[in-house]
Amino acid sequence: MEETGIVTDDDNGSGRRRFLIWATGILVSFSGMIVGIPLIGSIIGSSFRTAKTNWITVGDVGALPIGQPVNLKVVDNNVDAYVREPVIRHLWAVKHSNADVTVLSPICTHLGCQFNWNPASGHFECPCHGSIYAADGTVLGGPAPRRLDTLPTRIENGRLFVEWKQFRSGTSDKVPA
């Protein structure tokens, strides 16, 4: 303190001065923390909330061809923070029977590109980095770290419902994004 020249030495008040300096420091730190920690929390903490998932009505199971992966476009009533509006989603569906449909997320597990079905080879192929998946989603080649993500499905009265979820790309485990 002496070097700054703000406080001049004064022999009868040095104990009092030291107290005031410490007290000010503690009060400022307290005020800073009581405001600062919530401020940081409001920015960082909100980033780790997992998105709320929706059940999407896809439609009639009967219309889907058997054994042939089909790209479906569905309307998802999406809730993004405080914005609620319909969003179009692309899904891959493979019907085994009218009671059994596998729905795959359209997002490549490697880096999040959108893959395609190649009917000649009978594989899903990602154009970005060449990941190859079988019709059931298992990895056949390329850099993909895990099988294609399946989405939860439900069939009621011949109508197919899908729960839209997104998963982290690039990891070997299926972790919700």
Binding site: S47, R49, A51, V83, Q166, R168
Partner: peptide, 17 residues
């Protein structure tokens, strides 16, 4: 990285935040 990305996006995916 993953934490940074989440803080940047305000969540897991691109959105209003």
């Amino acid at each position: 990285g993953e934490t940074l990305k989440r803080i940047m996006l305000g969540g897991g995916v691109i959105g209003q935040l």
